[in-house]
Design a protein around this nucleic acid. Structure first.
Length: 420
DNA sequence: GGCTAGTACTCAA
DNA sequence: GTACTAGCC
């Protein structure tokens, strides 16, 4: 759900941007935010378990648009859900079920437009739906990675470690996770609004000039987030005022208690957990090819981190990241059966790092989730490997081929022109 | 003024 | 996931 009311309070530092302004850069994409809209055009079929490519077309058009403007996309998918979010998941599942029942009823009564609306609310973005898109990404040589848990944390990991230059999303949580550069609300033409953490000191609505990263995090959690509901009557403005005055959430809570506000004893512990969840979320490191924390866990931290979700063995984490196994069931994804429906083979599971023979997607098996050689090329940190001459040649050849293709397409296909 | 809760919206023929 | 807004404190 993100942080309610956060984006409007940061309006003064949100600037209209176009995808072409990010030419030459690499973007990590919150694919869920695309899929969420993309499935609307074919929700009825998806609710009935029938395949419909429209949502794939939606995503691929955006991929092509970004590539056209010189932006290299890396699509990031959500993985398993966290125990802390299970209540929310149950509520959403119940709401989808109710909407599906309503849709079927409206359809029986012949009210197709009402049924259609309910189908849109009933459609669930399953790992199988994501997997269909991943198959196309593989064919089109588009880089992707499936996060072990929340995509948000994975997106920020890629940005903080310079695997990408910025993130494309609709979700305000990216700011809470500390993402340095975000492109919000990008439409099909490539228009959206840009956000840079370095501008935060210039914000007008709420003064964040002396706020540290930690204070922004605490302000956001206090105003209510996915991992902790806010105290009654506390939104962004009041939590900002409290953190500005008291600097830490502990002191702010003490002040509220002194004023007679009743605070559940569990609340402070929940606050601490929420902080740790944002800071140390489990993500996949495409270079180390293993699960790591978004930011390193200090050795003195003796808290049990089980609420971050279990640590998965390297083979499992890699199979998930590559989209070879379902991140929620660990079952292997199989190709489509003759009926055109996606089936997961229940006999092919990865458990405790011991992979069954069947695990692994047969086609283009050796294509990594994020091609590590490419990833290395784009490293700008101290650990950046040497840039090889063969890489330069390959890059030059692929650049010339790409531009040749663009020119041919422009000459033959008026649809490409419409992207401009 | 700020928060809450409700509604509407995202696609695209 | 978002934005907008009526109604409440």
């Amino acid at each position: 759900m993100g942080i309610q009311g956060l984006l409007p309070t940061l309006k003064s530092i949100m600037h209209p941007r176009h995808a072409q302004e990010y030419a030459g850069k690499r973007a990590a994409i919150d694919t869920y935010s695309w899929l969420h809209k993309a499935v609307l055009s074919c929700s009825r079929d998806l609710c009935h378990g029938r395949h419909n490519d429209k949502y794939i077309d939606y995503c691929m058009r955006r991929v092509q648009m970004l590539r056209y403007y010189g932006v290299q996309p890396v699509l990031v998918f959500d993985g398993g859900s966290l125990p802390m979010k299970s209540d929310q998941e149950i509520k959403r599942a119940r709401s989808r079920k109710e909407n599906l029942e309503r849709a079927l009823e409206y359809e029986r009564l012949g009210n197709h437009s009402a049924a259609y609306e309910c189908y849109q609310r009933a459609v669930d973005i399953t790992p199988a739906i994501a997997f269909r898109l991943i198959q196309v990404l593989r064919q089109e040589n588009v880089q992707y990675v499936v996060a072990p848990y929340e995509a948000d944390a994975q997106l920020v990991f890629l940005a903080l470690n310079r695997h990408v230059d910025f993130v494309i999303t609709e979700d305000s949580d990216l700011i809470v996770y500390g993402c340095p550069q975000i492109f919000f609300k990008m439409d099909k033409h490539g228009q959206g609004v840009g956000f840079q953490i370095s501008d935060i000191t210039a914000n007008k609505d709420i003064d964040l000039s002396d706020f540290t990263k930690q204070m922004i995090l605490e302000m956001c959690i206090m105003s209510g987030c996915d991992y902790l509901p806010s105290l009654p009557g506390i939104g962004v403005k009041r939590s900002h005022g409290l953190i500005k005055r008291f600097r830490t959430y502990q002191k702010a809570l003490k002040h509220l208690e002194a004023k007679g506000v009743l605070i559940d004893p569990q609340y402070e512990q929940g606050f601490h957990r929420a902080i740790l969840t944002f800071r140390h979320h489990r993500v996949y490191d495409p270079v180390k090819k293993e699960m790591v924390h978004l930011t390193g866990v200090p050795s003195e931290l003796d808290t049990n981190l089980d609420f971050l979700g279990p640590h998965l063995p390297q083979t499992t984490a890699t199979a998930i990241a590559r989209g070879e196994v379902d991140p929620t069931t660990f079952e292997s994804f199989q190709d489509f059966s003759s009926s055109g429906r996606l089936v997961a083979d229940s006999n092919a599971t990865v458990q405790n790092g011991v992979s069954n023979k069947k695990v692994g997607f047969s086609a283009k098996k050796n294509l990594p989730a994020i091609n590590s050689s490419r990833t290395h090329q784009h490293h700008r940190s101290g650990s950046r490997p040497c840039f090889q001459l063969s890489d330069l040649k390959a890059a030059l050849v692929s650049f010339l081929i790409s531009w040749g293709l663009v020119c041919i397409l422009l000459a033959c296909n008026p649809q490409v022109e419409s992207l401009v």
